[in-house]
């Protein structure tokens, strides 16, 4: 196993083009445990963290650009970013311990393609776009289209995520991410729920609901969003019929598995609970921000 730390996207592309068995990494927080669990070692480790573009965060012309290998600790500490996307910042901040936070990244979290990835639901809820380095350039796809199943992505051999772009949320928008873990820290989500709403006056005008860990990939739940759109938030709280419909739609969208971390029945139930709770937080943020 060799190690390389290219300084540019182009150098990385060249390394990957030369070695079909090469593996890119940023934090290696999933790669190392997977290798210890028996995943074959790649012939070449390509460390993306020495590429400036992959570790920088910029905000220009109403658009955020976040290097795919940026440590999530840099996002949670970025006050402007966290003010714009509190739910995404929360999700990113839940990936492991403080030690892990200095290594984990949005790119790694997404490309590892775990359905339970904590930053992914809110990234999708905020319509994050992934800029992907191809063999000879870049292409851009919605973040929602990167993971295709547990451990599988739509990235071709040699492709890697360079950065994500996110548009500034419209006025009156708030997002939130909640996850269920048995402990308070250091766990993989049994269920995750991201909700983003935009409030116009006393009414929700736009909403997105994305669930994690309840299906092979994070799932966008249009029915749950539909339950929110048009709902009244007068007085600061969602009305009961909207929350009930939201929870029902969230439960219905689940296609979970029984595994060591949780049961089908539990995941389904708690998906509804977390969707409701996240929606309440998102509404409150939207109103405060409006």
């Amino acid at each position: 196993m060799r190690y390389a730390a290219p300084a540019t996207v182009e150098e990385a592309q060249a390394l990957l083009a030369d070695d079909a068995d090469a593996q890119v990494f940023a934090g290696a927080t999933d790669l190392v445990p997977q290798m210890r669990a028996g995943r074959p070692a790649p012939s070449l480790l390509v460390d993306l963290k020495r590429i400036d573009r992959l570790t920088s965060v910029t905000h220009e012309d109403g658009r955020w650009t976040i290097g795919a290998a940026t440590p999530t600790a840099d996002l949670t500490r970025n006050e402007a970013f966290t003010a714009a996307f509190p739910g995404l910042s929360e999700g990113a901040g839940l990936i492991g311990s403080d030690q892990i936070q200095n290594r984990s990244s949005l790119g790694g979290n997404l490309a590892n393609a775990s359905p339970a990835a904590d930053s992914v639901p809110a990234l999708i809820a905020n319509d994050g776009q992934a800029v992907i380095a191809t063999a000879d350039g870049t292409r851009t796809v919605p973040a929602a289209e990167v993971a295709t199943g547990p451990g599988h992505t739509s990235l071709a051999d040699g492709e890697f995520i360079v950065e994500f772009t996110l548009a500034d949320p419209p006025a009156g928008t708030g997002d939130a991410y909640l996850r269920m873990i048995p402990r308070t820290e250091m766990d993989i989500a049994i269920v995750g729920a991201a909700v983003r709403v935009t409030v116009d006056g006393d009414t929700i005008s736009d909403a997105t609901v994305v669930l994690g860990a309840v299906a092979p990939t994070a799932v966008v739940v249009p029915d749950a969003a539909a339950a929110l759109v048009g709902a009244s938030v007068a007085g600061g709280t969602l009305d009961d019929s909207a929350t009930a419909a939201l929870a029902e739609a969230a439960e219905a969208a689940c296609d979970p598995i029984d595994d060591k971390r949780g049961t089908i029945a539990y995941r389904r139930r708690v998906a509804g609970v977390l969707a409701r709770r996240a929606a309440a937080i998102a509404v409150e943020r939207a109103r405060n921000g409006a």
């Binding site: 190690y3 934090g27 460390d47 311990s97 030690q99 892990i100 200095n102 290594r103």
Partner: peptide, 10 residues
């Protein structure tokens, strides 16, 4: 950092 997750050349 967890030094177990970091490759030495890093």
């Amino acid at each position: 950092n967890c030094s177990c997750l970091m490759f030495a050349p890093e």
